[in-house]
Structures are given as C-alpha cells and as structure tokens.
Amino acid sequence: MIPEVTGEQSIVRTEGLSKTFDGVTAVEDLTLDVPAGIIFGFIGPSGCGKTTSVRMLLGVYTPTSGEVEVLGRSPQNFRRKEQRDIGYMPQQFVLYPELSVWENLNFAASLYGVPVRRKERLKELLDLVELTGQEKKRVEHLSGGMQRRLSLAASIIHDPQLIFLDEPTAGIDPVLRHKFWSYFKQLKEEGRTLFITTQYVGEAAYCDQVGVMANGRLLIVDTPTGLRRHVSGGDIIHLHTAQFMSEDEVNKLRVQPFVKEKNVHRLRERGLEIVVEDASAALPQLLEWCRRENVRVESASEYVPVFDDVFVELIEQETAVSEDTSEDAND
C-alpha cells in the first residue's frame, strides 16, 4: 500500500520554474508548494502552460530555468523508484485501440513492472472505474468516456503515491465528470496526492488547493474558499429589503464594524451586496442592525459566487496589474 504521508510534507515543490520553446515562453516563474495527500487543482484556460508545467514536473521536459523537486528529487534525476511512484494520465488517449480493455490495462501494469500475479489488482481497478464486464471489449469500440476511465485506471495500476492527471475531464459529460471527481476523492482518501489540471473552473470546488494559471504565469494558489475571498475581499451577504433603502441608511450600514472596508454595493431593485469578514458571524449582527433601524428584511443570506466569476475576476485583476506594471516600466 501507499506509504503514509502527512499533509504538511511537500510532495511537489518548484521555485521560479520557466520553460521557453524557441524563444516563446510557455511557463514563467512558476513557484509552487504542493503538500502530500491533497487534490491540487491546476486551473487555467487552454494553452496557458498547464501541460508544460506537468511535463516539467514529470521530467519529460527540462526546465529552462528554476528549480523543481518532486518526491524529494529533481525529475531530471529520477530513478526507477520515483518513476514507479508517479502515475500519469496524459491529456490525449494513448492506449491501444486494437487491444481489449484487459490487454491495455495489463500492458500498463507490465510497463511499470507490476508483478505477474496482478489479476486481482486489475479487477479492483476495473471495478473502481466501472468497467467490469467490458474486459474483452476492444478499446476502439468503447465510448470516449469509457476510454478516459480506462486511462485513469491505467495511470494508477501500479499504485503510485503521486498522480498527475492532465485534463482528465476534458470533453466528457457533466455526469461522468462528477463521477471522475468521486474517483479522485476516493484516491485521495486512500492517501494519494493528485495533481489535476483542468480548464473547467467550476471543478476548483472539488480541490483542496487550487493554482490558477494564465498566460504561462501562476496567478494565485489558495483553497477554493480562499480564492473566492481573495476576489471579493471577504464573504458576501446578499440583503433584500421590503422598502428601498435611502442613501443615508446605506451609508450608516457601511460604517458598521461587521462590514469590511465599507464595502456595500447596491444590487438591482431593493438588494444590497455586503462584504464581511466572516458571513456566519456577520449575518446575526446585520439582522440585529436592520431590526434596530426598522429596515424590514425580506431575505438575507451568504452569497457564494460561482468559480467562473471568480476566475474571470482573477484574470481581469491580473491583466490590470500587468498593464500597470508595463506602464510603470515604460515611464
């Protein structure tokens, strides 16, 4: 079984990692610290440098500059042991269409030197990815979703500690995507570390930590909650009142101690968006303030922004910062 790993121990660590192809920078100054035993989501639009980063972490690409350490060793100096401790599911399907499900899985097992008595292990994995009963079916006759599940099984056949999954959910339907994340959660619970790239921003919610990438640069690394808070500046409460609140009343609300940095914005009709430090603590204080000020409340609840919005906001912020930086440089 997988050796015990503590959540604090770094399993992937990079410092100022960059990769340039023929003068074009694919990844710039990537600094990461991924603790063992978590699901790390690497999110960003297509072509932002996620796959290049993963390939550097696997040792497939040599970094142009910077340092990288995976499983305590530079990927350039990986021994067979480290290579066996890593599982990799590439973005495209690389198994053999002419072979059956069982033969493909068996080949992957042999490739990693899994002992010959592996029948039970293969069955177990087919169960996990719900391909039991399809063993003899040729892969070319499988659906796209089944092929992705088989790829996943092949990447973990040798019981690796650290699993890199490059866009495992790309191009598959939402039901199957949900199922995949269930597998990932199960693998994490078994003690593995998962490094997952995705362009579906909403999938960040399933991760323990998320790194957001754009244009070859890592914008932020945080927990999903932390990301939201980072974008909005804190928790958000949406308040809807029975009557329109006057500007004086709104200004009074702005200066209340539970409101963060006077951050109150009007929504459509009789709604307000209030940024607070901690929504669960601030909500009773807000309702009490409304009672005192005779503001009739129709509804008041914490608002959790969707990750798409968070992501867009993050990209916009990054673009603004970049533009400022370049303007400063020009001045």
Binding site: G59, V60, Y88, P90, Q92, V94, L95, L111, Y112, G113
Partner: peptide, 13 residues
C-alpha cells in the same frame, strides 16, 4: 504519434 512515447518517458521504461 499516439502520444505513448510521452507515457514511456514519464515511466520507468
């Protein structure tokens, strides 16, 4: 062309 070489590069082959 299938991309299997990438898998072999990452693996212990």
């Amino acid at each position: 062309l299938s991309g299997a070489m990438e898998m072999f590069r990452a693996g212990p082959v």
